[in-house]
Design a protein around this nucleic acid. Structure first.
Lengths: 115, 115
DNA sequence: GCCAGCTACCTTGCAGCGCATGGTAGCGAT
DNA sequence: ATCGCTACCATGCGCTGCAAGGTAGCTGGC
């Protein structure tokens, strides 16, 4: 068994992280710090604030999420994110692409032959 | 239905392409141009020579593939790639990581909750 | 009062990889 | 001899994840 670097896995996160965030705020509002923690619970999706906040900013500018500041019961105020209709559409479109991509990779890794 | 750009999908290929190539040359020798065509058959993995040749060069330097020049029956000579033992180990290690990563993403996209 | 530690937000600069583009050369057919 | 296909390769850009560093609110202990 050979260990591959964490850097290899970090390349995997490219392009996927964005949609994991959209999925996280699809059904309920969440704030940034909470999203970092939630992603850390999913193995292979661990990330840091240095990654997430710039990403959240891009999503906001793009109009796929909208935000509300709310007081915290204890601590500094939080910016809560929720999905917009445009975000829901983009997420749905990605989910379809993801399935195709995932199946292609699975087939290749298992058989060594494209499908 | 909203179309998402090809650029979104191209980000998905990050870090995965390398291992798809390793998988392709695991069981039989293949040459560069052939690999480009083979990947194009797998939806979601379409790539170009501008991507593949630099990648093959990195894999060669890394020692996970080795190559042999062979005459073509018609056309310029071809450089054939095959997996080394180190490459096989790296591929196997990745396959395990991939399963974890894939399942995490699947869970998130489906439920909006990390697992 | 004040300081340490947690929470929570954000910015900046770097690095890696996929891609577009362009270049070279062998071979066969018209 | 020119065109088109095959087959190789290099260069520069852009995007995104990450490390590192910065600001500030709140709480609890002394």
């Amino acid at each position: 068994m050979v260990a591959i670097g964490e850097s290899v896995i970090s390349q995997l996160r490219r392009g996927v992280l964005e949609f994991c965030v959209l999925a996280l705020v699809r059904d309920e509002e969440r704030y940034g710090f909470e999203i970092v923690r939630a992603l850390s619970e999913a193995s292979g999706l661990v990330t840091t604030e240095g990654t997430l906040y710039p990403l959240l900013g891009r999503l906001r500018k793009e109009g796929v999420v909208e935000t509300t500041w709310r007081e915290s019961p204890s601590g500094p105020p939080r910016r809560y994110y929720r999905l917009t209709a445009a975000g829901a559409a983009k997420l749905a479109a990605f989910a379809a692409e993801w399935v195709r991509f995932r199946d292609s990779v699975d087939a290749l890794l298992e058989t060594g032959v494209p499908r």
